[in-house]
Structure formats: structure tokens, C-alpha cells
Design a protein around this nucleic acid. Sequence first.
RNA 1: GAGCCGUUAGCUCAGUAGGUAGAGCAUCUGACUUUUAAUCAGGUGGUCACAGGUUCGAUUCCUGUACGGCUCACCA
Length: 488
Amino acid sequence: MEDSSALMDQRREKLEEIRQLGVDPYPYKYSPTHTTEEIREQFAEVGDHPDETQSARIAGRIMTKRDHGKSGFAHVQDSTGRLQIYVRQNVVGEATYQVYRKLDVGDVIGVDGPVFRTRTGEITVMANEVELLAKSLRPPPEKWHGLQNKETRYRQRYADLMMNPDVKQVFINRTQMVQAVREYLNEDGFIEVETPILQPIYGGAAARPFVTHHNALDMPLYLRIANELYLKRLIVGGFDRVYEFSKDFRNEGIDHDHSPEFTMIELYQAYADYEDIMRLTENLIAHAAQTVLGTTQITYQGDSISLAPPWRRLTMVESIKEETGTDVDELTDEELRDAALDAGAELEGAAPRGKLIAELFEAHVESNLVQPAFIYDYPIEISPFAKKKRGSERFVERFEFFIARMEMGNAFSELNDPIDQRERFIEGAKKGEDEDALMVDEDYLRALEYGMPPTGGLGFGIDRLAMLLTDQTSIRDVILFPQMRPES
RNA sequence: GAGCCGUUAGCUCAGUAGGUAGAGCAUCUGACUUUUAAUCAGGUGGUCACAGGUUCGAUUCCUGUACGGCUCACCA
């Protein structure tokens, strides 16, 4: 249903009045010569009297308006910032001034005229011409407090962005971060690829999928929960270094660091193991921070964090011992189970040792990892795509890295033994459907049977890294249009 | 999924020990040709989220619903 209010009715009336003055309130184009930022830079030395040789055309949205009878000031905002304009009736003429008087905060205009400095020293465009480029029919949020209501900010991100420059900067930083990651990998010989989002068999992670249906093929399809298995097919095919920024979809709960629709990057490097990937990871993240923020020393929610390599490395078992004093390798199965229960784990049935160790890690260690840390050598039971650790049957060559108490990413020496992989699939598929059971991917096994080189792989959350680098506490604040229930 | 909290003008927020609501900004009218949260004078603007209940009377108390926020749970 269409909204209405007195304020909107007034704007519609003005729209008609402007039309009757012979002005098209929605013209087709405008050609600015400068952004407001360029004016601030190029006209920094301008004098306090308008000089026609120092002219510019700008375009943007009216954010404030101060009328003074036969003249008026306003601030115009474009993609680079705000600039003041000064409109005088004796300069623009009565006809234009009559239209100008009817303009509202929120309207998009173009202004042409000399740049000068006002009595108070503010760089200002003295309008020779003012042109309405788009009439705004909806009043913008209040100029001083901006738009605060979180629900409105998420639902109407356009209003959030126009009112809150900090929010815009967060998303600019996010884009720069993605660009920095892309540049680093391209420079390092990686190829960016695209793999299916609609997958007949989902895999590569333990998560519940969104299900859809293809009409012509009359078959179910799943929105991908990960792109891992497709990228490794490409390693089999001979791409030695590949990556993809992957929008993934997981049909699970939503909270401050989980969104049903989120972005991961996964990358795979042939002939590398997980130690190579650790080095790549710390260098890549440090590069991203350096590029976006100009430093690897960041502050996240009051914590000073150094992203400079090398990062701390310790095994999961070591990390538990460090936090609790307990060496899980010395515990009997029963003692281990009791320890996990003490830590608050909810165990159904006979949990394997590896699961219990992971529970202890999550309970005692994870929330203390503020500085970046690689936690490596994970129990085999929770890692179906990682290669066994050299000389061990119980652990795999896998690491996750943590920064600011957040789990940022996951990597392994990829399992390339097709017989072992088949067994892991079958083991993983035994879980009930409600527990993120694996689907056995025969085509992926066929690919492995052709032979996949030893490979190191990495996946990490782009949204979470963006949170870290922009000091945001909620994933919704780094996603432009977070998923919401429909407005009632 | 659970607990707590919130929803009042376009925006930001007050408020009513239950008697049909206020401020600032915005908006409208008038004055004003260097203001900048412009100023001065005078106005307009509300289904107090929605639906029931209690009550002479509910925006206020109770119950439910919707939407949202925070915390927890789930979650590689």
C-alpha cells in the first residue's frame, strides 16, 4: 500500500507547482564537472569573491537548506561528500529562484557557478544556474540525528547510506578489502573462477541447505553451502591455483556473526600443504588490512590486535592444555567425556574422542583468542575432507584461524586419497538428516580417482573479515541488504 | 528455539502512580541577500504497532499477535 503523510502530500503539491512553472522535475541527464571532493581539493586556495574563471558544476542531493528571503544557502551531497551552495535571486533570476524556493531537502539538483569562500571561510558554489534533477517525494530522516532505528536502517539501506556517512565508509572498506584479497591472489598466480550456486548435491561443509526445484529438469537443486568440492575438481583438471568469492547459503539460525546468505572465499593451491596455507593466510590478511587501513595494527571493539605475520600457531591439544592445564591425550575416554560434560557440552549418544576434544576447545579456548592464532591438527571425526596428519590416525592436517574471538576461516591439507574419501563420506552420511549429514558425491570421488595432486585449501568468511577491519559487531552491518522478515 | 527489552508525529526522543499526548528537528505562513543544528514571529501535524481483556474511562494495567533489538542455544 502506498504511504501517505502531510509531508508527502506537500511534496506532491510542490511537484505539480514546479511542473506548472514549466520545469521538468525528472530530466534526463546532467554533466557535472567536479565532485564535491575535487572542488575541495582544486579550489582550496579560492578567494572570498566569486570569480567566473573559477567555475564548476556539481550534482547531488540537498541535505540542508537555509533560505534568507531573496537568497539562500544549502548543502549538496554527492558520492564524495557535501558542499555548500549559495543561491541569490539577483544572480539566478526570479524565475529560477521561484523554483529554488520550492525545492526540498532530499531533492537532487545540479548547480553551476563560480567557487568562492564565504565570510566564514567555507568553500561554496555561487549558483549561476540551479537545475532540479529529481524531485524527492519522501522526507529524509532528521538532519542532526540521522537515521538511528536499526530496523529501518536495514530495511531501507538507501536511507541509511544517504544519512550516515560512516555506514557508507564501512561498505567502501569492505569492497576495498575484497579488491585487496583479489589483487594479492592474482599476483600470486591464482585464477578466479565461478562454480555452480545451484547444485544437485550439496557438500563441502556441514550445514543445512536451502532447497529449490528446477521445473524443466524436474529435479531438486540445492543452493550451495560451499564451493569446495567444485574447486578441487578444478585442481584435478589442472588449474593449480584457483579461488572464488562464493556467496553461500545455509538454512540455519541468524545471529551477530551468522547470516543465511554470506560470502566466503575459498582457494586451493596444488602441491601445497596446510603449513604453506598458514603462511599464505597470514600474509593475505595482513595485506588486506594494510591496503584498507594502512596498517596491520587494528582495534576491534577496544582490543588492540596485531595482524602482522607470523601469527601464533598451536595445536588444538596444546591450546586446551594451555587454557585448562589438562592434556587430553592423557585422559581415558570416560574422563574426556566427563570433562566435556563439565564444560557444558550437550552430548547425544556415544560421542567420539575427537568430538569431545573439539567441545573442550570451543568451551575453553575459542573465546580467549583475541590475537590472531592458527589452531591446527583437528580430530579426524569432525574433518571429512582433510588429510590425516603425518604419522597419526586420530588427527588431520587442518587448521582454523581465530581473530578477536571470531572463527575466521578453515584450511587443510586436502584429502586426495579417493578410497579414504569414500569411507569418510560414508561415515559422514550415517548421521541423521537433522544433523547435517553428508551427501556422498560420486562425481567428486570420480574426480579424485583420476588423481588430485597434493593440495592445500583455505576458506574464510569475507563478511567476518569485513567486520574485523571495520570494527562492526554484527554481520548485518557489513551486508548491504540483510535478510529480514517481510514488513507487516 | 528460549529469555529480556522495544514499537508514541516524517526523523530523534520525552510522557501519563489509568482521565483522548509533548519537545527538538522537519513541514506550512510571514520577515530576512554571507548562513551553516541560520534567526525571529505564528501555525499544521498522532488509529500512542495490531487484536482482545479489565475498567465509567486504556497510549498507560493484563493477555495474545506482528515486527525488531540484545543475550543464549543451534551452527565448520
